[in-house]
């Protein structure tokens, strides 16, 4: 029995060590960093204690608030479109008997491709001078737009890319949900004369609610992490119109050398997300910690 105890620790220790040294320790170091200002003098880092000053500065930082606001708008608008479009496509695909696999193969492609390449492709397509989007507009007799350079259009353009990129993910999860619904309920409802909209409204939607919620949460989490596409498409600009939270943090840390302030932002983001998770799992009355993955 003693060897079992030993193995119990041995099998879990790689996970524990990795989490400890590469997630817990860095978070702790971020916390320490966030109450300091780091300055490089003569190639040596000097840590000056500044207390809560970095946090106090957060509330007044328009880039940070713009970042949070833009991330929220981006996530809510993009994910809503993806859910509706994905659900519709899943319904259509499920009812198709021939070619289901072909459609699924094609639809899956975008989610397997690196975000940065999606960004590169769309950057070329959005190009003011030679992009295919403007060529199409010209062909239709409309005025070409500066999709990424116009501050009133830029966030929308990024959202369009995200909808194109991630609708297939919602499609796939919702299709799996649809395919797991019991067939006999539909047979019974058809015997009762339910068709089309009524079947969707009173049978499919209620039964699909758990899948819909899980898919929605999955996507929201990913949408909040958005970085790659924005980095390549707009770099947060023009102005602050596509400034998202990941990008603000990145800039503070790595291009503006404000490590202490960047750390305060990271800790604040971390805290907000932890609170959000706690709130969501309480609302859903689910004690299972995996429910939100």
């Amino acid at each position: 029995m003693r060897s079992t105890t030993l193995w119990r620790y041995l099998t879990l220790s790689p996970t524990l060590l990795l989490f400890l040294f590469l997630t817990v320790l860095p978070l702790a170091s971020l916390f320490v960093l966030s109450v300091h200002e780091v300055e490089w003098r003569d190639r040596i880092a000097h840590w000056d204690w500044v207390g809560m000053a970095n946090y106090a500065h957060l509330a007044k930082d328009t880039l940070f608030t713009a970042g949070i606001l833009n991330t929220l708008i981006f996530a809510v608008v993009a994910v809503s479109f993806q859910m509706i479009l994905g659900f519709w496509l899943a319904l259509l695909t499920q009812r198709v008997t021939r070619g289901q696999l072909v459609y699924r193969t094609i639809f899956l492609l975008p989610i397997l491709v690196p975000g940065i390449i999606i960004g590169a492709i769309w950057k070329l397509m959005y190009s003011f001078d030679f992009g295919v989007v403007n060529q199409l507009l010209l062909y239709l007799g409309m005025t070409p737009q500066d999709w990424l350079g116009d501050s009133s259009l830029a966030l929308l353009s990024v959202i369009v890319v995200d909808v194109w990129h991630w609708t297939p993910f919602c499609f796939l999860l919702l299709l799996a949900g649809l395919q797991s619904l019991p067939e006999d309920i539909y047979e019974a409802s058809r015997l009762d004369g339910a068709t089309g909209w009524r079947e969707l409204r009173y049978i499919t939607l209620p039964l699909m609610l758990p899948s819909i919620i899980v898919t929605f949460l999955f996507r929201m989490i990913l949408a909040f992490k958005v970085f790659d596409e924005v980095y390549l498409l707009t770099g947060g600009g023009p102005g602050t119109s596509t400034e998202v939270i990941s990008f603000t943090i990145y800039r503070r840390f790595f291009t503006e050398d404000q490590a202490g302030y960047g750390a305060a932002m990271s800790v604040a983001t971390f805290a907000v997300i932890a609170i959000a998770i706690a709130a969501v799992s309480r609302i859903m009355g689910n004690k299972d910690p995996e429910a939100g993955v």
């Binding site: 997630t23 817990v24 860095p26 170091s29 992490k225 990145y250 983001t269 997300i273």
Partner: peptide, 26 residues
């Protein structure tokens, strides 16, 4: 079980860039 899985969920949800700065320093 719960604290480990709970922690992995939180970690999975935060933007990786929040930890990138700490990893870089470390």
């Amino acid at each position: 079980l719960h604290s480990l899985l709970g922690w992995s969920v939180v970690f999975h949800m935060v933007p990786p860039i929040t930890l990138a700065g700490a990893w870089y320093t470390l």
